[in-house]
Nucleic acid binder design. Sequence first.
DNA 1: AGAAGTTCTCGGGCGC
DNA 2: TGCGCCCGAGAACTTC
Length: 302
Amino acid sequence: MPELPEVETVRRTLSELVVGKTIQSVTVSLPRIIQQPDDIKQFELDLAGHRILEMGRRGKFLRFIMDGVVLVSHLRMEGRYGLYQSSDPIEKHTHVIFHFTDGTELRYKDVRQFGTMHLFAAGDEFNHKPLSKLGLEPLDDSFTYETFRSVIAKRTTKIKVALLNQEYVVGLGNIYVDEALFRAGIHPETPACELSDEQLRKLHAMILETLNEAVDAGGSSIKSYVNGQGEMGMFQQSLRIYGRKDEPCVVCGHPVEKTVVGGRGTHFCTICQPLKRTSVNKVKSKRHTASSNPKVDGGVER
DNA sequence: AGAAGTTCTCGGGCGC
DNA sequence: TGCGCCCGAGAACTTC
């Protein structure tokens, strides 16, 4: 599925396509997509008559901000949105349709049926799952080296796994984690707590660089991802390590390796991203009271 | 057959 | 021993 750059691209596209439109009715043909409220009929009823004011994003979640309600949508692996005329034929794997008063409709398609939608009263969405426990927003001012280190540096898990955990930093998925680690020259299986200050700084910078470049390019398109207007993102051409198994490393020419880390296919270069077993553990300088959770929300409230 | 861009849940291990 | 945190494995589903 889309990671942050793809979701951001979809958000921008949907801003152009559906902001200002009023929902006349909603049709749900695959109930499992709707997580909140429990009752599908209630979901359909609660949305009818509402106007879309703005498109927001929190991590990989889209927010349809309406007058009084907010629809939180996650595309998971293969969810896609498209704007259609009501007369257009319904394509396969279309699970939710938002019928607008102007005769157009926004359709949600999802081959693997993993996507989710939650409906909340406006402003209440951040108080509940799935948005309540999300970590730092990497394109927000709150994503400084200091806040990044505060959530990552003490983790004993592999750095790739830590970066994929949305409770620490949001928006990174399998592609961009591999890309950022490659650019930073860090082996994906390095325990996060063994990274030097210098490595963490480099990693923080490369996460920003990779995500910003990808957003500017409109995201990547590995398989089924297409933005709201049906165009392919261009960043795929800029991927340096992801999907390049056995190809020569763009830096050193050594064949790119692929393994499994945290259950995910993982690409890396053994030369450019060495796994140091030396573990010259740097002393964790003054760690604050470990138990009192400093509540890192980095929320984009408003 | 196995893997595919994600996340949730469950259970075991570890430290306090 | 008990509790909480943390981590790894498996599951959710369809397609190629």
